[in-house]
Design a protein around this nucleic acid. Sequence first.
DNA 1: TTGTATGCGTTATCAT
DNA 2: ATGATAACGCATACAA
Lengths: 340, 340
Amino acid sequence: MGRPTVHDIARTAGVSLATVDRVLNARPGVRAQTVARVEAAIRDIGYVRDIGAANLARRRLYRFLFLLPDGDSRFVDGIAADLDEARRIFVGDRVQIAVQRVPVRDPHALAAALAALDPGDLAGLAVMAPQSPELRDAAARLRRAGLPVVALVSDQPAEVRDHFVGIDNDAAGRTAARLMGRFLGHDTGPVLLVTSSIRARDSLERRFGFDSLRAADFPALEVLPTLEAHDDPARMVRIIDTAFAARPDIAGVYSLSSGNGALLGALARHPGRRVVIAHELTPLTRGALLDGRLDAVITQDTGHLVRSAIRVLQARCDGRDIVASQERIRIEIILRENLP
Amino acid sequence: MGRPTVHDIARTAGVSLATVDRVLNARPGVRAQTVARVEAAIRDIGYVRDIGAANLARRRLYRFLFLLPDGDSRFVDGIAADLDEARRIFVGDRVQIAVQRVPVRDPHALAAALAALDPGDLAGLAVMAPQSPELRDAAARLRRAGLPVVALVSDQPAEVRDHFVGIDNDAAGRTAARLMGRFLGHDTGPVLLVTSSIRARDSLERRFGFDSLRAADFPALEVLPTLEAHDDPARMVRIIDTAFAARPDIAGVYSLSSGNGALLGALARHPGRRVVIAHELTPLTRGALLDGRLDAVITQDTGHLVRSAIRVLQARCDGRDIVASQERIRIEIILRENLP
DNA sequence: TTGTATGCGTTATCAT
DNA sequence: ATGATAACGCATACAA
């Protein structure tokens, strides 16, 4: 009555279970003719493998490792917390999740961490790190060994990863520009762009997206040169003070990357009505949204992010296709009113 | 080695597999003392049940029924399509999904459809329909029979459903108001609210949310009395024409419910720069976003919606807790730039 | 090249 | 009240 099983295939094709299994798992040692017969039977009765039973018999364990940046970041902390939750969610699916915080800003240290990995006792790897030649080489080795790799938040070249789990930062920048342009309206002062490092790829892409939409749809809106704070609060205060001294009419601020705490602190020294947009929903940005220091946050659902990474790795392990719509990470616009 | 199993529990507690199973599944016929010993063993060795193996042995089948509104609606069509996809996604998890389109606007027909259901050959039910006493009674019968029920998109009284899968429409209305107020800026004309039926609960809640935020944060913004089109395109044209005749300075339009096609058509007769906000991302609103007839869409991810409903029903069936963060449906703001 | 037999972790039927 | 044992659907070591 239930779904057809391997037994049904065996009976229909007139072979034994073992032969069915060999065909199902593309193992050698079966005559082409027999293979054809079995495959015909599979199609005929509409067999779909019971992955649960297969994993049970195989005693499969998906051991996944997540490489996350070390250092002080609420955003990364949030992802780590989401991973803790995902661990509980997926425990019934034989998924084990290990998290390792590595100094991703140091390409050599990151590469060393990857080099120390034995692809044999790992089923999949997720990496959140900036691009670097060192990472590229180290990851390529693991992938050659057959290890599925996904890039998390920051994309990597195709040689490094099987899949990217994150948002299109160019589109995110365009979204920020649309919001900024519409919130500011006509005849306003200039917009200030702030980032921790101008060389960070994500920042670059967002800035590029922001600029292109501004040029196309808000040509009258002036954009000041991007400021770099290098994750240094003192420096942040200095550059913001300098910027406001030069242009007291600054009407909007767009924070391209992390370090929003320092930025908001520095901005508090210059009271006035302004539109401020930042990225990533964290306890800090949530609070700023609630009390009006921030007008909008562009973010991605990090819970979804990590669950997607896990599902993608699992699918790769099983040789299954992923469900594109489920794994598409959305660019979310959060105002005070739709705060989750 | 691997995770602890029922055998480990049995050995540790000094009982047989059958007894362990009785305790695990809260079946009667075990001395309180023995129960305690087994439960202690479970905690001691940190046992977590292998759901896959359990479902295998149990030959479990989750037969879920989704009751969706009939009639012509791209939004509902989208949900039906998402259900088709979900069917494929969950086929490995022993989930079977049936969809039935019913005339939900007719409470008696809806109640009749529910009355025709045999709770015995169903594992869970999802209902998308407006509230009505008839639905309340019919659903109560099913729930008394132990059938898990979730409300989809439109919430229901607590007697009707175990769980609500959808967004907070009051917050959605507030979000629309925030967007409208910010996009319009100061010194603008009035805002027009349009709905298909003013009595629809969702519309009511959105309107309430919109009004309360407007009153609090945009007191200068004038809001015209809500217009009702009753899903009649001709009537839509008439009421829009009348509205614009009375107030040619209308600066914003907020569409509270469906029927956006008729609205956009009617608005096209009155050219001019306006802010238009609507609900639900469909092929229509997507197109309108792309060509500028719509400035923003407030929506919910219907793919997530149906998967969440399925997971919640599944959890109810297994007596498991749901993961709140994963099942929270977000109020999404879609501009042209972050269109998925 | 093909088949037999056993086990994976859980449930359920039958004894005791 | 408790225990032995046979499924469930699949994979695999080993035999033929």
